[in-house]
Nucleic acid binder design. Structure first.
Lengths: 342, 342
DNA sequence: CAATGCTGCTGAAACGTTAGAGCAAACCGA
DNA sequence: TCGGTTTGCTCTAACGTTTCAGCAGCATTG
């Protein structure tokens, strides 16, 4: 078996005693090929183990059948986040269903002034791209969208308002979470640990927090982290030192909330009795901490599904209109001060 | 900018006033092209934004520059596991470094008797493949290896002993973990929640457990789960009901350990005072549970790196010899009964 | 039975690239 | 001045596929 040359259309054609084009058309179920020949060719192709060469097919048809998932950040930073896994689950589900492949492109390496992921599209290795978690000021994203190639953005980019994007209601989610702390638990001194503020998600969650804080917003302490656990820990240290009366912390994602939890626990501060804590994302393990983390559940799998669906539709020429926003929901557990649910 | 036709070698050639082949050779830095022409062509190509068409290049060079990551299980099942993400981090790191792309193939859909991921290689969409987490009895894996195409397996497959693979010392890891419970904490009634026993990882971890249990191995209760949290919960219920004297549970991965923790907590059983708990994998959040989970740390990122490296070497014709095994380490936290580290 | 229309195939061209053979011009030592 | 080498490019073919015009042969029509 080993080392055998791949079987091509020509091989099948020779075996069937017809022309190469006849074989191609027979396999494509072309109406102008006789039923007998068609059947004969098809069984023969299967017997010989014919598989069409994807490079040749792409070259001829100007279509690769592949879409690129573009992750501008460096591998470690983004794959590490569970958010990404969920996105992948949703993406691959739809792509499998519709017979497309997934090319993962993480390399931000710039060459000849063109970032790697722009090259992916220009080289026609992918028919379109899904861009995950780029900074709002990433000029390459803007260029990619402007290039007219099929692109779907995950998250909103106000600077590219007309781009096709799929996001979640981050402002509302953050507001709801903060309001829960204020209205249900009657807390007033609430701090926010935000994500990196060049990401729209961070901006929106901060905006939601501020909206909920109303007139107190200008005094409410905000420290920026970078979505990593360690930064949550650092931010918490900072907050505790400069805000003695602090009653609650709302972190822009769960990992930073874990960091906060660890830091608070390390200092003997009880959660939620002394300080209440709320996170954001709800990927997997927020249930398992003690206390279980109250957080905002983000439907990342569904975001992935929608992004893939819209991109494939776009590629097929079905026009897509602007932004799509999926709702998030507040998931109440114990870290906010609510009683444990059975 | 939108809708512009892609610029090809011919365009650059026309602009430079030389032949297409001259342009091709100039861009490839061929020695037989004059320095002046070379420079001229290169600047011109950059100006025009030339990017070589990957389909044409693949077709001509019989090389796609892409490797496939094959995940026989269905998307949800496998992407969900953090193990997979770590693997991806390691893979993409090496691939980026060496200028290769990553094609993710999850669809196990069988068509014409050839599974989708075998088609990926036969269609030359990928130059080689990394197979992650297939069942030991998956005949397709065997066929893939037998086909002579470059394949690296993640994990060992005793049935295909001569295949190139990268795995971890699961038997030793499980034995060390179990011995810790026995020797350090003096526990005797220890149960194991195994993974699905058609996966070598599960088999090895069970073997390690049995080895550590010595003569008690035959009485030691073992319940098989499927690596999911819920199955850990179910297994724990089962174990508690039929083993009143149970002192410890060793779960074959962390997620099942979480399930065990949840179940024990729900029943008011204290961990580790009443029942000690040890997991396996150590991906991310085991630190955050209460008590923090004692577990076996698996260097999954490094496994990814090694697998990618070996596959690329294999593709370049550098022979690879059999199995490579990376060491795991026991990470002691609190759930086994050890005191919390500061 | 000539004109027309199907049916079922073949042949050629094209997709964009690369590699090797070929060929002129320049250069060299003798 | 001449064989021979070197330099710098062009030409051609090939990778495997798809598509479309073309063309027989046969059936249908008036």
């Amino acid at each position: 078996m080993s080392g055998r040359r791949a079987v091509t259309l020509a091989d099948v054609a020779a075996a069937a005693g017809v022309s190469v084009s006849a074989v191609s058309m027979a396999l494509a179920d072309h109406p102008r090929i006789g039923t007998t020949t068609k059947l004969h060719v098809q069984t023969l192709a299967e017997q010989l183990g014919y598989v069409s060469n994807s490079a040749a097919r792409s070259l001829r048809s100007q279509r690769s059948g592949t879409i690129a998932l573009i992750v501008p950040n460096t591998g470690q930073h983004v794959f590490g986040h569970p958010y990404f896994m969920q996105l992948l689950v949703g993406l691959s589900e739809v792509l499998n269903l519709r017979g497309a492949s997934l090319l993962v492109s993480t390399n931000p390496d710039e060459r000849h002034g063109v970032v790697a992921y722009e090259r992916v599209l220009q080289s026609k290795a992918g028919d379109g791209a899904i861009v995950a978690s780029a900074a709002v000021d990433d000029v390459n994203v803007l260029r990619l969208v402007d290039s007219g190639l099929p692109v779907v953005l995950v998250g909103h980019y106000p600077a590219i308002a007309d781009a096709v994007s799929v996001a979640v209601t981050d402002v509302e989610g953050a507001r709801t979470a903060t309001e829960h702390l204020r209205n249900v638990h009657g807390l007033t001194d609430i701090a926010h640990i935000s994500g990196p503020l060049n990401h729209q998600t961070s901006i929106d969650r901060l905006a939601g927090f501020r909206a909920a804080m109303g007139v107190d917003a200008e005094h409410a302490p905000v420290v920026a982290g970078d979505f990593d656990e360690e930064s949550g820990r650092r931010a918490t240290r900072e907050l505790l030192e400069s805000n003695p009366g602090l009653q609650a912390i709302f972190a822009a994602n769960d990992e930073m909330a874990y960091g906060a939890l660890l830091e608070l626990r390390g200092r003997g501060v009880r959660v939620p009795e002394d300080i209440a804590l709320v996170g954001y994302d709800d990927f997997g393990v927020s249930r398992l901490t003690t206390p279980a983390l109250t957080t905002v559940s983000v439907p990342a799998v569904e975001v992935g599904r929608r992004a893939a669906t819209r991109l494939l539709d776009l590629i097929e020429g079905i026009a897509q209109h602007g932004q799509e926003t999926l709702p998030v929901t507040l998931t109440i557990r114990e870290s906010c001060g609510c009683p444990p649910s059975t």
